[in-house]
Each structure stands twice: as C-alpha cells, then as structure tokens.
C-alpha cells in the first residue's frame, strides 16, 4: 500500500520561492492565484533570532474534512492518500474551502475549487512533484510512508523535530516540517510509520 507524503526541512529552505513558481507553471495556475504559499516567520527572542520559511500547500490530510462536506463527491481521496478535486463534479459551493482548517483551497478563475494535487499527473509518469524537483537545496522530500526504504522515512527519522501545522485540527496532515522551531499551534514529534 502506498501512502504519499512530503517533508520540508526548514533548515534547508532558503525562501527562494522557486517551488511557488514551479507549481504555478506546472499546473497552469492563473496569475494572481496560488496553490502554494510561503510564510516568513522570525522565531526566538533578540538577539537569538532565527528566520524560518514555511512553505504550505494542501497537506493531503489523512482525515481531510474537505472530503466529508463535499455534496457531489467532487473532492475525493485516492487509495494512496492524495486528496483531489474533480472539476467536472465541482459546483463551486465552497463548503470545502470553508471546511479546510488551513486555508489551502481557492476558487479557480474558471469556477471550480482548486488546490495542490501533489502533481498527481507527474507521479503517474514516475516523476516527482514540480516543487520537489525544482528545490535548489533539496529541502523537500516526497515519498511513500509505507515503504521503509523510501528516502522520506530516512528524512523523518534523522530530523531533530517533526511537526505538522496545527495538529489540533485532527485532520492528520501529510506535509511534515523537519527541524522547525515554529508551527501555528503545538509542535510535536509525530509517529509517521
């Protein structure tokens, strides 16, 4: 069984925004709209300050609240854990936009709701998501949590800390931040396998 997930090592992220550009280009995201966003945060107390870049996109939550509220089945989860939207079924009711605790969905200019797909079309061709491939420092690792030999599990084990954004939502996000000192909510070491 495959369980796709992504890690982002905050120590390695330069905040260059190449992932945001690659995502928009790869997925033809309309100008002015974004599937990926970057928060720049200063952590600590002067003079011991550190800047963290936290790049966020759909977390492909294992218990995604956006799926349950969708009235037409346009939002669904694949067997390998990717949360997708079928534009042909989407009515634009925006229940999923409202239900997403992370604000990761938006209404595409063409009316349907859009978000990160983990570049599902590239995965089908055996390629990595565009943001992962373009990252100049290798801050992102994408892989299968259920495959012990996959580099993502190595990255998770070796990290000083593993956290997700606001675990209180109970959504069980599948984008893990490595070595971060800040999350929007309690940070905790997570069991990922």
């Amino acid at each position: 069984m495959t369980r796709w997930a992504m890690t982002l090592d905050v120590d390695l992220c330069l905040g260059c925004e190449a992932c945001i550009v690659a995502c928009s280009a790869e997925n033809e995201v309309p100008v002015g709209q974004f599937r990926t966003r970057m928060r720049t945060t200063t952590v600590g107390t002067f003079p011991n300050l550190r800047t963290e870049f936290r790049v966020e996109s759909c977390f492909h939550c294992a218990d995604a609240p956006c799926i349950d509220v969708c009235p037409t089945g346009a939002t669904y989860q694949t067997a390998d854990g990717i949360v997708l939207v079928d534009p042909a079924k989407c009515t634009g009711c925006k229940a999923c936009v409202t239900a997403c605790p992370y604000g990761m969905r938006y209404v595409h200019r063409d009316g349907w709701v859009d978000k990160c797909t983990f570049c599902e079309h590239r995965l089908a061709a055996g390629r990595q998501p565009a943001c992962v491939q373009t990252c100049p420092t290798g801050a992102r690792v994408f892989g299968d949590l259920d495959d012990e030999a996959d580099p993502i599990n190595d990255a998770l084990v070796k990290a000083r800390s593993v956290s997700v954004v606001n675990p209180d939502t109970g959504a069980n996000p599948h984008l893990f931040y490595l070595n971060s000192q800040f999350t929007n909510g309690p940070s905790e070491r997570l069991e990922t396998t």
């Binding site: 974004f34 200063t42 952590v43 938006y106």
Partner: peptide, 13 residues
Amino acid sequence: MDSTEISVVGNNE
C-alpha cells in the same frame, strides 16, 4: 517559543 510572522507570499483573495 516567541514568533512573529513577517510576510506571507501566495495568499489567495
């Protein structure tokens, strides 16, 4: 830990 958000790139209206 104290933290201050400086900027956000990629907000959707």
